[in-house]
Design a protein around this nucleic acid. Structure first.
Lengths: 149, 149
DNA sequence: CCCATTATCTCGCTGAGCGAGATAATATCC
DNA sequence: GGATATTATCTCGCTCAGCGAGATAATGGG
């Protein structure tokens, strides 16, 4: 159980990155009186915002793999901390729309900014072909990791 | 807050992979009566084994960001499920060495194998320079994500 | 040999997340 | 248009992961 091909080494490297990133998330969470799940929730909500999708409570729960009770709890916590606003959807008043507060975004950037900057900086040394390769790889990894029916 | 450079897109892609991977881990966990932390623990232990490092209870706790009580609990759970063996270190009998059971490895491979295979397969289309680029990027990302003193 | 240090475990507690079911808004059918 | 089914969210009570504090046991230095 060691020294397999260079491809496997890359997969291990990718996994290590995901593990470490999880730990940084946890640090950020406890630094701001939150839990990992709350941070993951904020990330999902920002992704939705960036994609222009409506983020409802149910949608968030699905993203996080929580049931409705747990989802309500997450939203309650984030709302209590002022990181989030609940709004009843005027078009379908059963739904609750979620909006991330600007300040929460700033806190996130303050913590993860340097990390992101540093990664982006590394990419600046890459030429066109190399950048494309990285994107292609990550895209393939994303496919592999999402499509487990 | 949208459409920044292609570098940032890559970082977002990487983050998405980590998020999805976390969800797969959670699926694997509940599939085998475990929790995410237990799975992460097994991963850490296998990494240690591969690296030839002694995996002690304290070391594991540090990797997972748990305190000693929580660490004992994780180990208890994994031992109860038969995925793990505790052995007192004969050289320093305060320490407890942890060894992952072969069957746990098989379960992991059955679940994550296809996912890994598929990612590795994608790399087969890459030439030398492209593979190197991916490795270099992941290495940089790993550096960025580990070195937040 | 005593004491400080290190590694792990035990106990009691807080709170994240679950199942079950309540509530309220919307969609469907006659 | 009202009865009914469906959908979205929330409430309640419970279990158990992980924490803080402190116990226990092994090691190492003076």
């Amino acid at each position: 159980m060691s020294e397999q091909g260079p491809e496997l080494e890359i997969v291990h490297l990718l996994r290590k990155v995901t593990v470490e990133f999880g730990l940084r998330q946890a640090e950020f969470a406890s630094l701001h009186q939150m839990h990992s799940t709350d941070v993951r929730a904020l990330i999902c909500l920002l992704d939705a915002e960036r994609a222009g999708t409506d983020a409802t409570a149910g949608w968030l729960g699905a993203q996080l793999g929580l049931n409705s009770a747990g989802t309500t709890a997450v939203i309650d916590r984030l709302e209590r901390l002022g990181h989030l606003t609940r709004t009843r959807d005027p078009r379908d008043r059963r739904r609750v729309l979620l909006a991330v507060d600007e300040r929460a975004v700033e806190l996130g950037w303050a913590f993860f900014g340097p990390l992101i900057e540093s990664t982006v900086a590394a990419l600046r040394d890459f030429d066109e072909k190399e950048t494309a390769a990285v994107r292609r790889f990550l895209y393939a990894a994303h496919e592999a990791v999402t499509s487990i029916p």
